[in-house]
Structures are given as structure tokens and as C-alpha cells.
Write a protein that binds this DNA or RNA. Structure first.
Lengths: 205, 205
DNA sequence: GTCTATAGCTGGATAGAC
DNA sequence: GTCTATCCAGCTATAGAC
């Protein structure tokens, strides 16, 4: 097939580079002004081109968000796949939680795109979503390694971590007022999960 | 002063009513389409008037957001001030957490306006903010009643609750997948706060 | 205070030349 | 594929008549 000829693949590489340049400019834009600041005019201007060229690489603005989501999800999967340092399962869980929080707070628009659903009319495609699912599965496996596998405990885990991250981002964006509570929160969590009877329901059902 | 004459105060009441009508229409709008869906044209249309009339009651769009914020903060304060049913401090804390979660999930845009900072260029005025502060102080007092008063535990409390609320809103808006974990989460929390040595830091500082 | 009309701008998306 | 030029819709906000 002619697509495998050297010339064609060279062109393909060029094309991929132009696409990557546009996406890089898009990340710059949203990191400076939030997800709402992504406009095709400004994006084209920063990439040194014009809006019709943008449409040569992306079908629509939401298609750009989808590509950004895919990159964010891939980063999330890579981050979660890296082995974590710690001698005990609990230490590894703490390190894992710290890494997750750092991933989120270090790039707020990326976090909002991945985990909050704040862009009206945008839903990520299945392909873009897949790595995010795998990243969450990695988190589930790490919990299972610490002998925490009940579904409701997994949900409590995600609520605890995203709660800390959200408060950190919303109320102390340049500090560590909530980030520094991660170790205590994780230990509270694992202690509870291993001995749930200690905090017995008041209204048993 | 002529402002106290019957006619003037009647006019003042009319004026306040028109303002209230506009705010009610604004709430309808954001409840249907999110905070981003508030446009002055559509707001005026729904209130049966036109945009210049809106500007007779509000100086700007952000002034409308400020009025919405003030109403939301006042609701929050009233909700938190109501006594809570429960025989023990823990039961009252659980009821309080349930009420907070219900307050948030029952009106997502109100929650986003009050607790997340998602509107570019808008910061609530000090007057609008004051009742929100008092509402949070009420929460602090309830924690103190349960013998939880360390600042980092208060922060952990807000993170835990907003985490549950956020996950509920973002990932299961019509269900109770995270809301139903409130009691367990609160008991985990109070158990930890009363016996923090049980979940001892791995790296003591 | 309320209207008509519109200024002035920004947005996404496209037609058509090259 | 990349450009110029433009369409069309939406927005906040205001001028000026009544």
C-alpha cells in the first residue's frame, strides 16, 4: 500500500507533529486560563496558524477536548502504572495517594477534564476513556494488595482522595493545607476497613 | 425623609419584588443549564422583560451572581442553624452530614456557586460571603460538640464530606452510591479523631 | 423604569482561492 | 493543507425615546 511508502509515512509524521503542536498549544491555553479559555482563534494564533487549519486536524472543538482527554487519561495510566515505593502495603498506599494528589494538583485543568465533568456538551469517546478506566483499575489492585476489596470501601477511597484534592485546589491552591493530611487520612481509612466493627453503625440494617 | 412615606416604601416593595422575580428566574435558568447557562437575554426573556430592565436592578452579570451567592449562603446558614435530630453527638453529626449532603446534591449549581470557584472573574462580595462563614462556624461548633476540635480534623471533615458529595454529583447524579456511605464515613472519622494513635503515622515527625 | 435598537465584541464553523 | 474572508449566532452592555 502506498501508505507504507517512505514519502507517505514522512507526511504522516509531519501531520502528527502539526497535530501535536496544536495540542501542546491547547494545553498551554487551558493551563493559563482554565478549560473555558480554549478558543479556536486563540489556539490557532498561538500555534502560528489559522482556524481553518485547526479544522484540518480536528473535526470540532469537542474533538480537541477529546484529544486532550485522551492525553490526560494516558498520563494518568502511566502515572498509576509506575511502581510505588514502600515496604508495607500501607506505605505503598500512602505513596500511591500522594502521587495521585500530586498528579491532580499539579495540573488543575487536566484534573477537571478527567474527573469532573464540567464542559457542557462534551463526553469523552470510548477510546479516550479506556486508559482512564485502566488507571482506575490499577488503583483498585493497589487497594486489593492492602486487603481492601469491598466495593463500598473502594468508593469511600475515591471520595476521600478526591475530597482532599478538591479542597486543596479550591481553597488553598498554592499551599498544602489538605495535601499534608493525606497520610493521616489513608491510615484512618485502612484502619477502618480492616476493623469496620470498631465504628459500628448506630442504626444497623 | 420621603423614603419613609407610604408611597415610597410601596415603590420600594415593588422594586424588591421585581428583583426577586429576576433572581427566581436566574435560579431556574442555572438549575436547568448550569451556571454557565445564565445569560442576560434569556434571563430577561423568562422574567417577561428586557435586558435594560435587568440593568435597572443589577449593575452587571457578576452582580447577579453575587446576589445568587448571597441567597445560597443564606440558605446554607439557615439549613445549618436548624437543630439536628439525634440522641448522641455522633448521631447528630451523622444527621448533620446527611443534611449537608442533601443540601448540596439537591441543587448542584447552588453547591458549585457556594463551594467550588468555577465562574471566571467572579468573587463573591464580603456581604454575600458573611452568611456562608457563619454556616461553616455552625459546622465547627457541631464538631466541637462531638469533641472534635483540632483544626486538621476540621479540614479532614470538610474534605471527607465534599469528597462524598463531589463523587455523588459527578459520577452518580441520580443515585445514592456515595450518599449512602455517609454514616460509615462519619463513624470512621469520629473513631479516628478520638483515638488517632490507633492509626499511627508510619513516619513520625 | 421600561422599552426599541444597536454597538461592540467573541465565539464556532465554512466557502473558496491557491 | 493552508490561507483570506466571512457567515451567523451568541454575549454584555448602553444610548436614547417615552
Amino acid at each position: 500500500m502506498s501508505k507504507d511508502s517512505p514519502q507517505a509515512s514522512w507526511r504522516e509524521i509531519r501531520r502528527q507533529n502539526a497535530r501535536a503542536d496544536l495540542l501542546a498549544a491547547a494545553w498551554d491555553l487551558v493551563r493559563e486560563g482554565g478549560l473555558g479559555a480554549l478558543s479556536l482563534r486563540e489556539l490557532a494564533r498561538r500555534a502560528g496558524t489559522t482556524t481553518p487549519t485547526v479544522y484540518a486536524y480536528f473535526a470540532s472543538k469537542n474533538d480537541i477536548f477529546d484529544a486532550l482527554f485522551a492525553e490526560a487519561a494516558a498520563s494518568f495510566e502511566r502515572t498509576n502504572a509506575r511502581p510505588v515505593i514502600g515496604e508495607s502495603p500501607d506505605e505503598r498506599l500512602i505513596a500511591h495517594a500522594r502521587r495521585f494528589a500530586a498528579f491532580c494538583t499539579s495540573d488543575v485543568p487536566r484534573y477537571q477534564l478527567l474527573f469532573q465533568h464540567v464542559i457542557p456538551g462534551f463526553t469523552p469517546s470510548a477510546e479516550a476513556f479506556a486508559p482512564a478506566i485502566r488507571g482506575l483499575d490499577a488503583a483498585r489492585r493497589r487497594l486489593a494488595d492492602a486487603e481492601i476489596s469491598q466495593p463500598r470501601h473502594v468508593d469511600l477511597w475515591t471520595a476521600l482522595l478526591t475530597g482532599l484534592v478538591d479542597q486543596q485546589i479550591s481553597n488553598d491552591p498554592d499551599g498544602d493545607r489538605w495535601s499534608r493530611l493525606i497520610e493521616e487520612a489513608v491510615l484512618m481509612f485502612v484502619t477502618h476497613c480492616r476493623d469496620p466493627a470498631r465504628s459500628r453503625p448506630i442504626h444497623p440494617g
